[in-house]
Amino acid sequence: MKSVVPPVRRSWLHQHRVAIAPWLFVAPALLFFSVYVIMPIFQSIAISFYEWNGLYNAEGESTATWVGTQNYVKLLDDDRFFVSLKNNLIWLVFYMLAVPVGLAIALFLNQTVTGIRVYKSLFFFPFVISQVVVGLIFGWFYNPDFGVIGSLWKAAYCEEVINIVGNVSTRCAKSPPDILADETWATYGIIVAGLWPQIAYCMILYLTGLNNVSSDQIEAARLDGARGWRMLRHVILPQLAPATFLAIVVTVIGALRSFDMIAIMTRGGPYGSTNVLAYYMYEAAISEYGDRYGYGSAIATVLFLIMLVYISYFLWRMYQDEKGR
């Protein structure tokens, strides 16, 4: 049977609206994101094969000169690069402490007593504060002359002496340790400062996770006689797996991104001993000794490749999730 109503003439645009619409919705974000994030990644990799101080000549052309893999060859001979790489590894390992400690605090706080909500938010405080402020606080904490460590040390090892003129001075059996000026301990000092907010982050992930643990399963396990440690290991932790995954992801990324605290607390020193790739790259690219964009970009590329391993893993996990839907 033929339709009596004459077909309405619809424009091509209207007919294909469901095919075109998504692109219109995505376009602004995609454009913006490409210009500032996607393209720069490839540009950086390209610049890493050049020697360039970031300047342009009078004609507006870049003054970069092609050096091939020379920047990477130089990296292999650069002690500071390897110190940074080693420190990145130390960061990765010790930063991971945030995950179990965060879990411990979450378990400690997962109760229903009066005021617990306020306690939870106060525990979360360090994460909300800027890392610059955290760095300053800890820098002062570690200060041997007038920081907390210094004062505790003085209380334990020093005595006040009054000389003939009557001036008071302190004499110490051992001089207080200057953690941030010590090549061996400075990095650990910064990591401890960095752990403070990161633990808070992991704690909140676990608190949310604990909220969703099925109480039926806990009751069932209790009837079977599971308690304490065994309960945690066999019943609770498996259910917390999504929280653990997220905690590890954000901690790894946090460790590899560590920059703010190093910039505030030591600026990579003493003698480059607290450098990490993120900071060393910045130092190499924009420094008082002249800009070395090419060399900096080579360091950035190495850091990017390391991160790419985690990004790929994360994407793979997401892909598995998407397929399962």
């Binding site: 500032y36 990644i41 950086s44 610049i47 990324i253 790259m281 900096g296 990017f304 991160m307 994360f314």
Partner: peptide
């Protein structure tokens, strides 16, 4: 993926 890249790879460009 873009959201997770290190800032340093974007810095110079």
């Amino acid at each position: 993926a873009g959201n997770f890249v290190p800032f340093q790879i974007l810095m110079v460009p």
